[in-house]
Design a protein around this nucleic acid. Structure first.
Length: 293
DNA sequence: CGTGCCCCCTGTCAGC
DNA sequence: TGCTGACAGGGGGCAC
């Protein structure tokens, strides 16, 4: 659900309200969301202050500094929102409208409240030491919006995999932050069929995919993300990108480019959406490859 | 090792 | 109206 643009929107919404604040009380209602016990979690964070907030892939990351003796000790709180996670900030706890599925309540020193809310509980809140965080982050692919992520980086790594390009894009070890919505949207813009094997994507298509990915992600951030159902910004608002989607969940509707009907298929356990005209299916190549054996 | 499948969990919606 | 099954933005584990 929340992919890169949604996590980015949440980070932008939280930065002003929470950076510089400290935790007066951390209350865990759903221990299964954590990588440690509820007691450890709240004890480790209580009294700590939020030094910064940023995004890595689809994760919202808070850097927490804890005074212990002379030198401040740091921890990173990595929030993966799974399919239905929300991070909501309330200036004053709204007792008339309590969250339906609260998981963790972070009471801040200005009497405001940060709530982690998650209906399906696929989300995870992971506390990491700075060393562990570095290792974890290094195992993840590059940030697609980083200036250092070049089209050549994308083209070069594509050639190493036989996975369908849509599945390839979903793998966080390849590129960080892309989920099913934006993978499908970017492939449509680039004119590449979702089932095309990654290594068969030509350099010219790779160039288009690089540009499409960045364009789609930036446009979605500008619209504050895509709300299909659960996603909300930190303020509790819906994102506005759903109305700008070109293929995702638009099966049966006309392609915005050519007017033909958008189709849906399923592989790798999830749906793919594409225009059969703008994104011609890969040629069956089983016979071709066997000819070279 | 890379890849694909199943599962985690709850809510919603289509079809009967 | 109510039941059942399919499906939903993610990702970890496991078998091949």
């Amino acid at each position: 659900m929340p992919e890169l643009p949604e996590a980015e929107t949440i980070v932008e919404g939280l930065r002003g309200p929470v950076v510089g604040r400290s935790f007066s009380l951390v209350q865990v209602l759903r221990e299964d969301l954590l990588n440690t016990s509820a007691d450890n979690f709240s004890q480790a964070l209580s009294g700590g202050s939020i030094a910064k907030i940023f995004r890595r892939g689809k994760n919202v990351v808070l850097r927490i500094e804890i005074e212990s003796g002379s030198r401040p000790n740091a921890l990173l709180l990595v929030v993966n929102l799974g399919m239905s996670g929300r991070l909501l900030h309330q200036a004053h706890a709204d007792r008339s409208n309590p969250p339906s599925h609260p998981g963790v309540l972070f009471y801040l020193d200005d009497r405001s409240l940060l709530v982690y809310h998650d209906v399906r509980r696929f989300g995870r809140l992971t506390l990491m030491t700075p060393t562990f965080y570095r290792t974890w982050s290094r195992a993840m692919g590059p940030e697609p919006l980083s200036p250092s992520f070049t089209e050549w980086d994308l083209i070069r790594t594509l050639t190493r995999s036989r996975s369908p390009i849509r599945s390839w894009l979903l793998d966080q070890k390849r590129v960080a932050g892309v989920g099913n919505i934006y993978a499908n949207e970017a492939l449509w813009r680039a004119g590449i069929h979702p089932k095309r094997p990654a290594q068969k994507v030509t350099p010219e298509e790779g160039r288009r995919l690089h540009r499409s990915l960045r364009k789609v992600l930036r446009a979605a951030i500008a619209a504050r993300g895509t709300t299909l159902r659960d996603y909300r910004t930190a303020e509790g608002w819906e994102g506005g990108y759903a109305s700008e989607l070109s293929v995702y969940s638009r099966q049966g509707s006309p392609c915005k480019q050519c007017g033909n009907t958008i189709e849906k298929l399923s592989f790798g356990g999830r749906s793919a959406f594409f225009c059969p005209t703008c994104q011609p299916p890969p040629r069956e190549s089983a016979r071709d490859t066997s000819a070279f054996r």
